[in-house]
Amino acid sequence: MDPQLFIWLVARTTGMASYAALCIAILSGIALRTSVLDWLAKNRPLRALHDWTTWLWIPLGAGHVVALLLDKTAQIDPLDVVVPFQVPYGPLQIGLGTLSLDLLVIITVTSWLRRRMNDELWRWIHRTSYVMFVLLFLHAYSSGTDFNAPAVSAITWAAAGGIALLGASRIVFGRLPE
């Protein structure tokens, strides 16, 4: 197989898989503050799952970024990974991905440093996970090569819809009754 073709396949695969891993991370995070997954597990195992998913999306997200950097057709510079809206084509679509990645890094690093941080500050930073997911979804919707495939689209929309519903419920009602 042509190396560039393989890199292109890796970029698409890791993009979709990292989206799935992040969906699990966000869902488990919301479940900690609601009772929707009480039937599945208590808070302690859910918290362990939420922390564990970090080690799923980090290699997948890194693989997605590295593959796009190596892809000669994508024309992504290292600076585009951090600074959004600088890509010569599709600046908005790819910039949304850059923004979501920036937020994701901030959220993750601050979570690792939670004990050294002000608790209220950490909570507000962590709440930007919802914003991060919206940016990620818009990035996938506007630039994903496979987003319009029926199966991919159905799963992606379903995951996003479920997270949106749970997130809205969490914001409006707080902890949902059993």
Partner: peptide
């Protein structure tokens, strides 16, 4: 995802 991408190398309807 890998299997799907391998079977659909090109997508003329891709947004970018």
């Amino acid at each position: 995802s890998y299997d799907y991408a391998k079977l659909h190398l090109k997508n003329a309807a891709a947004p970018l």
